[in-house]
């Protein structure tokens, strides 16, 4: 694949990379570094992409694999607050809805790296089988993890809402 073709393809699907970077990296520098790393790995691996799966599924694999093994420059202790604040909310919503969203973002940012991967795929409407394919686990395992995850997110976000 030509460089120009690849750039066009990545540009069309860059929302996936942004989503992964926003979830896995906290500081601006880390996000940029992770973005570069994912782009670089995708460029190197594009020759192996045979079209057996959707390009988006392939890109998710590359992005998640890179994010999970990415060595952060700064301490892994998160600056969750600033990361959540940096996320762009649509401000035409009700303040109450904004607060609920903030609470949910905080809860998501507090998740483990594997749980974040599950959330990322779930938000993109992947079914459990497809999620299992990307992660390398069974659909049953995904279902169990997702049930537990939803419960945890509900509890954590409510905890945040009540404390404010």
């Amino acid at each position: 694949m030509e460089e120009k073709e690849f750039i066009a393809l990545i540009t069309n699907h860059q929302r996936i990379i942004y989503k992964v970077c926003n979830l896995y990296a906290q500081s601006h520098t880390d996000k940029e570094d992770l973005f570069q790393e994912i782009t670089l790995n995708a460029w190197k691996g594009i020759r192996n992409f045979k079209g057996d799966s959707l390009f988006t599924t392939w890109l998710y694999r590359v992005a998640l694999n890179t994010a999970l093994t990415f060595k952060r420059k700064e301490n892994r202790q998160r600056k969750v607050d600033s990361a959540v604040d940096a996320l762009a909310f649509s401000h035409d919503q009700q303040p109450e809805a904004d607060e609920q969203l903030t609470a949910m973002y905080k809860a998501i940012h507090g998740l483990s790296d594997i749980d974040k991967a599950l959330v990322t795929l779930y938000l993109d409407d992947y079914d459990y089988k497809e999620m299992g394919n990307v992660l390398g686990i069974t659909a049953n395992n995904v279902a169990v993890k997702m049930n537990r995850l939803k419960k945890k997110l509900k509890e954590e976000s409510e905890k945040y809402l009540y404390s404010h």
Binding site: E3, F6, I7, I10, T11, Q14, R15, Y18, K19, C21, N22, L23, H28, K31, E32, D33, F35, Q36, E37, T39, L40, N41, W43, T66, T69, F70, K71, K73, A86, L87, A88, F89, S90, Q93, A97, L101, M104, Y105, I108, T120, L123, D124
Partner: peptide
């Protein structure tokens, strides 16, 4: 809304930076 929020926070917007990202050195272990 969550999906939109995560996707719309674009910190790396210039298109030419995408090209330069492909030439940069990776930092992974």
């Amino acid at each position: 809304q969550l999906k939109l929020g995560l996707e719309s926070n674009r910190f790396y917007q210039k298109p030419d930076l995408l090209q330069s990202a492909m030439l940069m050195k990776a930092e992974s272990v």
